[in-house]
Design a protein around this nucleic acid. Sequence first.
DNA 1: CGCCAGGGCCTCA
DNA 2: TGAGGCCATGGC
Length: 223
Amino acid sequence: MLNKIYTELYSRFGPQGWWPIDGKYKKGRLNSVKSFQEKFEIIIGAVLTQNTSWKNVEKAMDNLREKNPISPEKILKTDSKILADLIRPSGYFNQKADRLKIVSSFLLKNKNLKNEKDNIIKKKLLDVKGIGPETADSILLYAFNKPFFVIDLYTKRIFSRLGFCEKNIEYKELQKKFHENIPKKTNLYNEYHALIVELAKKHCNKIPNCDNCPLNKICKKNL
DNA sequence: CGCCAGGGCCTCA
DNA sequence: TGAGGCCATGGC
């Protein structure tokens, strides 16, 4: 079931090229080795996109770059008010400014994070204030290339409509279904989540637009 | 004008 | 553990 859905989505939408870096979707460099700079941008983006559209996040990221690369040091030495103002377009800017600083100092104190075991990394990420289950998994998957399937609002909406799970299923429960039923491969997790987001935007919106949806044949339409 | 968006924290039962 | 309030912008 889950594998079939992936095939349907991939044949409709093709490779998505996540995570978008510097505003661009670079298809074909999936799961590539990433510089610290790229990983840091992914982590910052993961925080800024919490309950926020990616378009707004891009504006905030552009403000943060201001010609120079974003770095933990730079964020930490920027005054909180100024930082909040830079990321204003991403919403929740006061809260997110704090979170960016907390995450930055966490990363500076844990330079060798990637050498730890996967589950230890996840525990440490979850201990950081401002990083919840989805943000942690996004960082693990898209920055560190670790096989953690990202569950978001869209995933719950789509798979409950399909008839695959309850509407208010727990994060860990739905993630378990993916981990147990599709091959444990980072590239697959990466594309699958991105394809879910694409489907949610094109068809499975809050108010669904089922015309020509690639999953019409298998969807139970539990709306 | 109202609703939504690639959540998470805190509080209170 | 479950529900509910809070954070806040830009697009439509």
